[in-house]
Design a protein around this nucleic acid. Structure first.
Length: 569
RNA sequence: CGGAGCGUAGCUCAGCCUGGUAGAGCACUUGCUUUGGGAGCAAGACGUCGCAGGUUCAAUUCCUGUCGCUCCGACCA
């Protein structure tokens, strides 16, 4: 490609609506342009990089034995009603109506479609296992699209769905995808780490997310350097050894006045001096229209993902002030679970057997000390409910846990039979018995992966593309483009030789000053730059430079061979 | 949806408080000079000041509404 024939609108300044470095660079390097919030056009250079990521994904999926298909983006709502997700997933739907006012859904994901297809086409255990995938645009009415391609209303996803005869077989399919994902991200030049994950609205029981560490990521990953434990904070656990540390306190309950004290923090101060980890925090939630109490240690936070798992429903919300008063006859800040009747109490594991705690008295302006939870509070269910905090002990090896932010680029799930049962994806086993297929589903955010690569690989001058996904691998920079000049003659000759040999090369034939060309090449981040200028050419040499690396000089006649060698690596 | 901020030239922004002539830099066009890390000079072109209503002799500026965008929270590849 000749630069003058391409469209590469680089920007010197960052557009005002880009916040994070990868978004700024996508715009500045002329890879994408915004149409509207969460909707982007891929310009020629951005589209080339995207296609390269897609190609890697496709090659690895094929290699793992998955079969590529293409499903409709437009879906009938009936299959969502059948799977039971029409209500639970409706917040993310973009809905459209046809001329007869019938409603359709722009697909946010395709479990329902693929399972419907499989229900019709796969009948025997002899046909399993099967894994189908597609690379396609998904539509999600995100609450808040942001950071360019990171969270968009419309994005390209690779989604795959496996069908197996048994849990054991499904586990093998899962492992294949897990391994394929590891290779995909490696080939994209990404450091992506698999972490244990919550299954969320997708349903299912077992899952890993592939996370790219980045301060701008929207997820938090809890990890242990010593034993390699890593999990999404929503899923993560830590050791809970509270009661053993504290000794026993059998003293009788004692109510005391705490006028104006409505926060954990205020109670830690004089004259009360109750450490946060000796307080019991009482939260009131409305779960399926009924109040529920949740008890946590004072210095802990509720992990709502775990709450959903414990309650077995996602229909919950924090209670309003009036609802709290109606239930407990006190306001937030003075709440407690002692003697509470008729309201189920869920308590965090950390509080098991604790004594000598302080909690609200359900009377504004009063707290109660010497609380022994086993003696004084009727707990309906103990569960791991708290958000893991950095420094807590790893539940596997006991070493301190760390937390860091990350971008989720892939997610693999074991789904079980939820969808196959609901949508009739059954097969006959050897005994001619009808069985639901055991499913797995596997997603990669292709457009997000592209941006994650940039987020992870850049410097002050711009993007640093890995060779595998760069829009062009080689950028030729002749410093004088006069047609009859020695520089351009050589450039044309090398360019045509490289092109003939299939090298992915762009020739910067613009009549610009060298500084402009170098700045643009660095900004876009072509991995290899071949500069041809009179200075070096006087010594019969051209210049090869890796993005971010050292300048090296090569004899002009060896340039093609050298580039071919570098590109092959 | 709750909270915060911003809409003026293709881009980055000033002007608005204190109403009266639409501005800078970059980009663009032409010419000359320059030519190894975002050149200089000169000339030029480019605006429904987001939209609607109100106040006023007069609104980019004040008021109301509305739409859009960005950030923080819930959602997720």
């Amino acid at each position: 490609m000749r630069w003058t024939q391409a469209l590469i609108p680089t920007l010197k300044e960052s557009p005002a609506d880009a916040e994070i470095v990868s978004h700024k660079l996508l715009l500045r390097a002329g890879l994408i342009r915004k149409l509207s919030g969460g909707l982007y056009t891929f310009l020629p250079l951005g589209f080339r990089a995207l296609k390269k990521v897609e190609r890697i994904v496709r090659e690895e999926m094929d290699r793992a034995g998955a079969l590529e298909v293409l499903m409709p983006a437009l879906q009938p709502p009936e299959i969502w009603q059948q799977s039971g997700r029409y209500e639970t997933a409706s917040d993310v739907f973009f809905k459209v109506r046809d001329r007869s006012k019938k409603e359709w859904i722009l697909g946010p994901t395709h479990e329902e479609v693929i399972t419907t297809m499989v229900a019709g086409e796969l009948n025997s255990y002899r046909q399993l296992p099967k894994n189908f995938y597609q690379i396609q645009t998904k539509f999600r009415d995100e609450i808040r699209p942001r950071f360019g391609l990171m969270r968009a209303k419309e994005f390209i996803m690779k989604d795959a769905y496996s069908f197996d005869v048994s849990d054991d077989a499904a586990q093998k399919s899962y492992q294949k995808m897990y391994d394929a994902y590891t290779r995909i991200f490696q080939r994209c030049g990404l450091k992506a780490i698999p972490v244990e994950a919550d299954t969320g609205v997708m349903g299912g029981k077992y899952s890993h997310e592939f996370m790219v560490p980045a301060d701008t990521g929207e997820n938090e990953v809890v990890y242990c350097d010593d034993c390699n434990y890593a999990a999404n904070i929503e899923k993560s656990t830590s050791r809970h050894i509270m009661h053993a540390d504290l000794g026993k306190n059998d003293s009788a309950l004692e109510k005391f006045a705490t006028p104006g004290v409505v926060t954990i923090d205020a109670l830690t101060k004089a004259p009360y001096g109750v450490a946060a980890d000796r307080q019991i925090k009482t939260l009131v939630y409305i779960v399926e229209n009924k109040p529920v109490l949740i008890l946590l240690r004072g210095d802990h936070q509720l992990n709502e993902a775990k709450l959903v798992g414990t309650l077995g429903t996602a229909t919950y919300r924090a209670a309003e002030a009036e609802e709290i008063f109606a239930a407990l006859k006190a306001h937030p800040g003075s709440l407690g679970a002692i003697g509470v009747q008729g309201i189920p109490v869920y308590a965090d594991e950390v509080l098991r057997h604790v004594t000598g705690m302080t909690t609200g008295a359900n009377e504004d302006g009063f707290h109660v000390r010497n609380v022994s939870i086993d003696r004084d509070i009727q707990v309906k269910q103990w569960a791991d409910l708290r958000l893991t905090q950095a420094g807590e002990s790893c539940s596997h090896c006991g070493k301190p846990l760390k937390i860091r932010r990350a971008i989720e680029v892939g997610h693999v799930f074991k789904l079980g039979t939820k969808y196959s049962v609901a949508l009739g994806a059954n097969f006959s086993d050897e005994a001619q018995k009808s069985q639901p297929a055991v499913m797995g589903c596997y997603g990669i955010g292709v457009t997000r992966t592209l941006q994650a690569i940039i987020e992870q690989s850049n410097d002050k001058d711009g993007i640093i593309w890995p060779l595998s996904v760069a829009p062009y691998q080689v950028c030729m920079t002749p410093l004088n483009v006069a047609n009859d000049g020695i520089v351009m003659k050589l450039a044309e000759q090398i360019y045509s030789e490289l092109t003939v040999r299939g090298v992915d090369v762009i020739l910067d034939d613009r009549d610009e000053r060298p500084g402009v060309k170098f700045k643009d090449a660095d900004l876009i981040g072509f991995p290899i730059r071949l500069a041809i200028g009179e200075k070096s050419l006087a010594k019969g040499e051209v210049e090869i430079k890796f993005r971010g690396g050292e300048l090296t000089f090569v004899k002009a006649e060896e340039a093609v061979a050298k580039i071919l060698e570098l590109v092959k690596k």
